[in-house]
Design a protein around this nucleic acid. Sequence first.
DNA 1: CACAGGTACCTTTCATAGCACGGTACCACC
DNA 2: GGTGGTACCGTGCTATGAAAGGTACCTGTG
Lengths: 107, 107
Amino acid sequence: MNESQLRKGVLDLAVLSILARGESYGYELTQDLMAAGFDQLGDATIYGTLRRMEQAGWVTSRLVPSSDGPARKYHSLTRAGRASLSDGMERWTELVASLAALMEERR
Amino acid sequence: MNESQLRKGVLDLAVLSILARGESYGYELTQDLMAAGFDQLGDATIYGTLRRMEQAGWVTSRLVPSSDGPARKYHSLTRAGRASLSDGMERWTELVASLAALMEERR
DNA sequence: CACAGGTACCTTTCATAGCACGGTACCACC
DNA sequence: GGTGGTACCGTGCTATGAAAGGTACCTGTG
């Protein structure tokens, strides 16, 4: 059970949560997530996640040129993305509760 | 983000937690887990998990014939399995905290 | 000017885990 | 003898996190 397996699926929730605070771009998201405790997070993981989310209609993106570096691709939540976040948070909470119950009973 | 993705990695923790209460077998584990809130859990998932755990040295198994049904394969935690559970619980707690922080800040 | 380093994005490829599906086999009961 | 519950297993599919590599922009510094 390596760390990466634990992260599976949870990462979507983390990204959606950050985007719910306002638009962001891949590089910044990676930094934010690592600062939030998601260690050893490769940037390719985030870019893949964002691409999937855009295909699913959860986020939209716009390319914004920058004068002091490469262009940034800003992503914002759509209505569907917000719905998915609510839904995911609910199931996440249930999962946490289920596991907490199991771990509590252990001796 | 389907339910099964959320479960990735988490299932190991759930199985280890149950086994920490005492030995059990695949079929019973499946029942217990579904009762605990892990809906739509296929039995193949559990058998695969147990097989991986045995290969990893986290559990041992013994086949016990039954007079009122097929033989059962009982699994118990090894010392390494117990260590893995402790470790996993710690990282799980951290992950839950990280995500809680992210979800809280959302508007 | 060359080049290192930070920023920012992307693609290809791989390993893994959950799951659907199908199969085997034992036992009890009607 | 057929149905239903118990109990196990193998094969193939799919999604996803991650490694590895590549491109390109800009700001220093030598």
